[in-house]
């Protein structure tokens, strides 16, 4: 039983990682109805920026803040410069652009920072919090940060005029334009926010998996699974989905299929959710008229 609890809790810890990246995916989906394949690499790139800042002698939290702002700016610029021209293009063109972004960011990071693995500092104390023996304080802290981000996003979307405008754009761009919302800028803001959330995710992930240009490959897949499981348009669902995927992955890996097929759990989940319940656990069911 003790071993089982341990598996579940360490699953929750990794689940927190997936949840934070899934949250970023849901952000972009909410505003643009697109699934960003480059989300993981954007987060990875931001984390490298944070690493440079910290290595240049900056304290952790100032570097953290600066990185989030930087990521926001990069997100906005990417939307305005790269995504805007293909906004109304067929899905294939958009997917190709996402893939292009993925490989460009990946190789640019490799070019600038080399492919050697780097350690990334954690802002949380070394000794475990509250005397628990299952999760390190960084893992607990990362879960806490993810939840804080979730609450902030909820407050932003629910209680601010800007959040309302962004929700309106997601639901009905044409009508939003008619009531005077600048749809283009809302999309750009959505990208910026998603990039910022991704940067937070990256900085929480890096101390665990170490920093390297390919660190996000598997994690992105789990984040996809998490976002789909929770409902691709539901931030709360993404977080719950993230924890669920983390626990499932760990428990299945330990007791059912063995550790060497863990990625297939994500594959199975993605296909399973898409087939059985495409709207996920908490998502809205999409109905389209023919």
């Amino acid at each position: 039983m003790d071993a089982f609890i341990h598996q579940v809790l360490s699953g929750l810890a990794t689940g927190g990682i997936y949840a934070s990246l899934a949250l970023a995916l849901v952000m972009i989906y909410q505003v643009t109805r697109l699934v960003n394949f480059a989300q993981g690499e954007m987060a990875m790139f931001s984390t490298y920026i944070a690493w440079s800042l910290i290595n240049a002698g900056m304290g952790y939290w100032p570097a953290f803040l600066l990185t989030v702002l930087f990521a926001f700016a990069v997100g906005v610029v990417i939307e305005r410069v790269v995504i805007r021209p293909v906004e109304n293009a067929p899905v294939l063109a958009i997917v190709v652009v996402f893939i292009a972004l993925l490989v460009i960011l990946n190789s640019a990071t490799g070019w600038i920072y080399s492919y050697t693995i780097k350690t990334f500092p954690s802002p949380f104390p070394k000794e475990p919090l509250f005397g628990n023996k299952y999760m390190s304080s960084h893992e607990l802290g990362a879960i806490g940060v993810t939840l804080v981000v979730l609450v902030l996003l909820y407050v932003f979307f629910r209680f601010t005029p800007l959040g309302l405008a962004m929700r309106a754009v997601a639901q009905n761009p044409e009508s939003s334009r008619l009531v005077g919302i600048r749809v283009g800028w809302m999309l750009a803001l959505g990208w910026g926010l998603a990039a910022a959330v991704g940067a937070v995710a990256g900085m929480m992930i890096a101390p665990i998996v170490y920093l390297d240009p390919n660190m996000m490959g598997g994690i992105l897949l789990y984040a996809f699974a998490a976002a789909l499981l929770g409902g691709i348009d539901s931030p709360g669902g993404a977080v719950i989905g993230g924890f669920a995927v983390g626990v499932l992955e760990n428990v299945l890996g330990a007791y059912v299929i063995g550790n060497d097929l863990k990625l297939s759990v994500a594959l199975g989940l993605i296909i399973g959710v898409l087939l059985v319940r495409p709207s996920g656990l908490f998502g809205k069911v999409n109905v389209s008229r023919v």
């Binding site: 697109l34 699934v35 598997g218 897949l221 097929l261 990625l263 993605i270 087939l275």
Partner: peptide, 28 residues
């Protein structure tokens, strides 16, 4: 199953297949 998936979702499902393939091949 891909019949039920359109556009982006099919891309996602096949992406997942591509990412998990090396691990499947290593299966002991």
């Amino acid at each position: 199953p891909a019949l039920r998936l359109e556009g982006l979702y099919l891309a996602l499902a096949t992406f997942a297949l591509g990412v998990s393939m090396p691990q499947l091949l290593k299966y002991h």
